[in-house]
Design a protein around this nucleic acid. Structure first.
Lengths: 125, 125
DNA sequence: GCTAGTAACTTGCAAAAAGCAAGTAACGAT
DNA sequence: ATCGTTACTTGCTTTTTGCAAGTTACTAGC
């Protein structure tokens, strides 16, 4: 199913290596959700964009393998899991933030950084 | 072939909107090349990662439509084109730079920011 | 004039990834 | 016993990638 994917490097370029992990339409949205304080599978699924369930499961697995995300069971009966960012994952904050700044400047109708920070404050309150 | 792609928005999230334009394994590598001073189709093709020709053509078209890239004919006989970043495109610099910083910190074997800046200086000399 | 070479793409097709709906397992609540 | 929820998995269709080869326009060399 995955043959040897992680072994092969396209190049020594840091951008290419980053894209090998994050370069698709969904992965950074999961990271965004985690930065916003979301923790569970169903919370990710409820996000506005509607990530397909199989894609979400696969991305969470890949992010764990990459060392960006950690999964822990926080409850026995019923079994429940919480996902969170590792330090490596939290350090993607600047990447996400620079995208937000860019989009706010050039893509009309996107939610402003300020409103997003309000959301984060609310979620972590 | 493209039905109505640009019209539909997944959400008002700036990250999602950015990923709708840049969220794949190749697009930001083209932007990287442009930031490095590369200008022609064949220069992009010669990059280490080996982007497939049809993908490159399609991505350049999309980047133009998005207002990130401009194409101009700089010579008549034979016809030759030069691609360059618009202001909107140049402002992706921070996104690319934050990826470089992250990769340098967490992905071993990636070219350092310093070496990349030397490359840029050399290319633009 | 003929062949070779380069730039900038396009086309055809197989393989991989995405997307969708439905299904499953483990529980708790009614 | 049935319903609802969480956290996924499975099967299948559709879309996107990736690869090789082909095309057009032109220049240089013999």
């Amino acid at each position: 199913m995955k043959k040897h994917e992680a072994a092969f490097k396209r190049s020594i370029c840091p951008v290419a290596n980053t894209l090998d992990i994050l370069g698709d339409k969904w992965t950074l949205l999961v990271v965004r959700d985690l930065l916003l304080g979301k923790q569970t599978y169903s919370e990710f699924q409820k996000s506005e964009e509607g990530i397909p369930s199989n894609i979400l499961a696969e991305r969470l697995k890949r992010l764990q393998q990459a060392g960006i995300v950690e999964k822990r069971q926080y409850q026995q009966r019923p079994v429940r899991y919480a996902y969170s960012l590792t330090e490596m994952g939290r350090e993607l904050g600047p990447v996400v933030r620079s995208m937000i700044m860019w989009a706010n400047k050039y893509i009309p109708g996107t939610l402003s950084m300020e409103k997003i920070e309000e959301l984060i404050a609310k979620n972590n309150a």
